[in-house]
Design a protein around this nucleic acid. Structure first.
Length: 611
RNA sequence: GCCAGGAUAGCUCAGUGGUAGAGCAGCUCACUCGUAAUGAGCAGGUCGAGAGUUCGAAUCUCUCUUCUGGCUCCA
């Protein structure tokens, strides 16, 4: 089955193949004639080789593994006699600068398997790679200066193409040989490389901006959430200000789902072993589940997913085709054991609330349902300020349950929905779960980073395991289709992405403090408190800053916490019962009548616009 | 889980074997001020936990906890 444009998934391979053809024609393709992606690819790949040469100068006995170009840079894995320090990185960088300023040519040589094995006899990782190369594949090596690497290329023609001030080594990290935790742990050096020093500087600036927006940092600065090692890692505590945002998100979410034809469910947090045995989780998902607690001689497990509970509700009565589709949503809090090393702020946690939904429908309804759920998802992403969305369609893997026809229909409905929305998408052939195909949506944030959030997933497994059925118009019992859907994914993770997307400067409708009322002097505290109270009673998240600080300090605090509206009141405002507005963008408007200000706030909130 | 690097006041960090420090935040007092930090004073820490070495440990060693960066991007 052929679906869609196969973009990024195979770009790298295609790029390499295409480049290899070119290489066969002429070894020295003028770098300038290549597209920028290709130029950077070669520069980065070549920089990795140069780094390996530099490392070998310092550690002549080093075993080298692999060193590919990656997004924004490159890495190389080494097996070294000791651990690298930051000083080592500087030294390696110095050697690299020396090498690249030397106009050493990258020369390609094709050789036989035997000759290659001979050449890399002291390099066990290279030998393993050579052994695994399929018969008939050309084996090539690249040499620059004193270093030769097993490599398919392509590279730049000379080391002087790598600007000595346009690359930088960034970090060293452990990495298993071939990503396999049973294999040796190697030391991976990450670097970034660009065509010009200016681009490098821009990239380093970008990294700084990423750090500044880090949700853990912003979360602390704006008093949004915390975690507590004493109380358990990977478990999130939502502070009052964070909770205000969550409530704003949930209120919007519930209203949207009501409009979208969803019913809401509430289900328990724990379930007996029977439930998880029936669902198959105890067979296939147990290592991700919290250990059971024993009550009355029965094991209860904290739920890692909501689906079995929704199925229990489905099965409480006979379902007719007339009842379908059922769209059932739940903000369901689940617990999953994540390995300690992978926990990360709000983005990877052990307890989280999914904005889950399950759709049960007839085969005839499936295509429309999928179209609708995708349309619905995109609308919600748009409302949250994310309009750059990309879809990933994952199809049937070799090992899977469910018959061919259903997989085919499901995949076709997913594809039709994507095309219906005119979405850019990639195909992940065989990348679906064993129980069904899926669409994942990745959204792009303000810094251009992609986050996988939404998943729309068919399930051919659970309906069988729980023996679900509906009575069709012909009076026969049939199996319903079941679709899992998590839109924002988890509220914790979504919150983390939202924080970084806006850098803490949340749009008015989400801001934890929409307006802070600042008296110019404490003589006007009374009026400030009154204004804040009126705003609060009108439903806005507003407060007065009646602290001892001077007005300038209060404004500074409000700016630093990215409060959208600073409402300044003094003698004039008190007399006229008006306010003066300073927005966080620095715009100032004097003497707005209170009612006008509240109307303006209200308009901006409901339209999710900036003030 | 594994590798490396961290953990010192609420926060950011200094302190490398000899009496625990700074800035910000907090508290108190004074100042009453019109759009990004008023000033002075006070208080605040079993130096992540436990064990060890030492006359003496924030500092050296070991164990544990936890955080950070990685562990897919296949020569």
């Amino acid at each position: 089955m052929k679906i869609g444009k196969m973009n990024l998934m195979s770009t790298q391979q295609e790029r390499i193949d295409a480049a290899e053809e070119q290489m066969a024609e002429a070894q020295a393709v003028a770098l300038e004639q290549l597209p920028v992606d290709e130029r950077l690819y070669r520069i980065r790949h070549s920089a990795a080789h140069v780094m390996a040469e530099a490392v070998l100068r310092i550690f002549p006995d080093a075993k080298v593994a692999i060193g590919p170009p990656i997004e924004n840079g490159f890495y190389y894995d080494f097996d070294l006699p000791r651990h690298l320090t930051p000083e080592d990185l500087e030294q390696i960088e110095e050697h690299m600068r020396e090498i690249v300023s030397g106009d050493h040519r990258f020369t390609r040589t094709v050789l036989s398997r035997e000759a290659a094995s001979e050449m890399f006899c002291g390099q066990p990782y290279k030998l393993e790679l050579i052994r695994e190369l399929p018969d008939g594949q050309e084996i090539s090596i690249y040499t620059q200066n004193s270093f030769t690497d097993l490599c398919r290329g392509p590279h730049v023609d000379s080391t002087r193409r790598i600007h000595p001030k346009a690359f930088k080594l960034l970090s060293v990290a452990g990495a298993y040989w071939r990503g396999d935790e049973k294999r040796p742990m190697l030391q991976r050096i990450y670097g970034t490389a660009w065509e010009t020093p200016k681009e490098l500087r821009a990239h380093l600036e970008h990294l700084k901006e990423v750090e500044k927006r880090d949700h853990r940092r912003v979360g602390r600065e704006l008093d949004l959430f915390s975690t507590h090692e004493e109380a358990g890692p990977g478990l999130i505590y939502w502070h009052p200000k964070g909770s205000r945002i969550r409530i704003a998100i949930e209120d919007y979410w519930r209203a949207a789902h009501r409009e979208g034809g969803y019913e809401m469910l509430f289900t328990p947090h724990v379930g007996k072993a029977w439930l998880w045995q029936t669902s198959g989780h105890l067979d296939f998902y147990k290592e991700n589940m919290y250990a059971p607690m024993e009550l009355d001689n029965a094991d209860y497990y904290a739920k890692p997913m909501n689906c079995p509970f929704h199925i229990m509700i489905y099965k409480t009565r006979m379902r007719s085709y007339r009842d379908l589709p059922l769209r059932w949503g739940e903000l369901g809090t689940v617990y999953r054991y994540e390995r300690s090393g992978v926990l990360h702020g709000l983005l990877r946690v052990r307890g989280f609330t999914q904005d889950d939904a399950h759709i049960f429908c007839t085969p005839a309804q499936i295509e429309d349902e999928i179209k609708e759920v995708l349309r619905f998802s995109l609308k919600i992403w748009d409302d949250f300020g994310f309009s750059n969305t990309k879809a990933y369609l994952a199809t049937r893997p070799p090992k899977s349950v469910g018959d061919e026809d259903r997989w085919y229909q499901a995949q076709r409905s997913l594809q039709a929905a994507i095309e219906d929305q005119g979405l850019d998408y990639e195909l992940d052939e065989g990348g679906g779960a064993f129980y069904g195909p899926k669409i994942d949506l990745k959204i792009r944030d303000a810094l251009g980073r992609e986050w996988q959030m939404t998943t729309i997933q068919f399930d051919f497994n659970l309906p069988d395991r729980f023996d679900m059925s509906f009575t069709d118009s012909d009076g026969r019992e049939k199996r319903p289709y079941m679709v899992h859907r998590a839109l924002l994914g988890s509220l914790e993770r979504f919150f983390g992405v939202l924080i970084e997307h806006y850098g803490g400067a949340f749009p008015l409708w989400l801001a934890p403090v929409q307006a802070v009322v600042i008296p110019v002097a404490s003589a006007f505290d009374g009026y400030a408190a009154e204004v804040a109270d009126l705003l609060f009673r009108a439903g806005f998240r507003a407060e007065a800053d009646l602290s001892d600080d001077r007005m300038n300090a209060k404004i500074r605090n409000a700016q630093n916490t990215k409060t959208p509206c600073m409402v300044i009141v003094g003698e004039q405002e008190q007399q006229a019962r008006t306010v003066s507005l300073r927005t966080r963008t620095g715009e100032r408007t004097s003497n707005i009548a209170l009612e006008d200000f509240m109307r303006r706030m209200h308009d901006k909130v409901v339209t999710r616009a900036e003030i």
